[in-house]
Design a binder for these strands. Structure first.
Length: 127
DNA sequence: ACGCTGACTATTA
DNA sequence: CTAATAGCCAGCG
């Protein structure tokens, strides 16, 4: 698949100027920002928290713009259901995700969160 | 407006 | 454990 390219300011409308924001993306970002340091969660968990548990993919897609939005979204704390750092290639560099996690006390081996279940943070409990 | 893509998940083999 | 398949839905060409 030589797809590639999804650069630039895609997801044009994440933050329309002065507009009321409660799009799907905004809700994802809001939840993601609440992830405490040293904890991780899954796309599906976030999706479920905002009432779209079947749309885990949209959560991941939303994170695609997480780098450019206002307060920094800890996208590195969001991994897939297996605890794998599936989105690491979307960071400035692939190793950054693991670095950030380990820096916060989350051990990562072979691109997977160690003791993922123990570090898991359920967004539903916070909301 | 239609079709393809995708940072997912669950199920089946 | 891996591989393949289906369901899912917002954004973009």
């Amino acid at each position: 698949m030589a797809k590639a390219k999804l650069p630039k300011e895609k997801i044009s409308n994440i933050k329309p100027s002065g507009n009321k924001d409660h799009s799907f993306f905004e809700m994802v970002f809001e939840v993601a920002r609440q992830i405490p340091k040293g904890s991780v969660t899954s796309y599906g968990a976030i999706a479920a928290a905002i009432g779209a548990k079947s749309s885990a993919r949209m959560v991941g897609w939303a994170m695609n713009g997480a780098h450019k939005i206002k307060p920094r979204v800890p996208a590195h704390r969001v991994v897939n259901r297996q605890g794998l750092l599936t989105g690491k290639f979307h960071f400035e560099y692939p190793e950054q995700m693991q670095e950030l996690l380990e820096k916060e006390g989350v051990r990562v081996v072979n691109d997977k969160v160690v003791d993922f279940k123990n570090h898991f943070w359920d967004p539903m409990e916070h909301v």
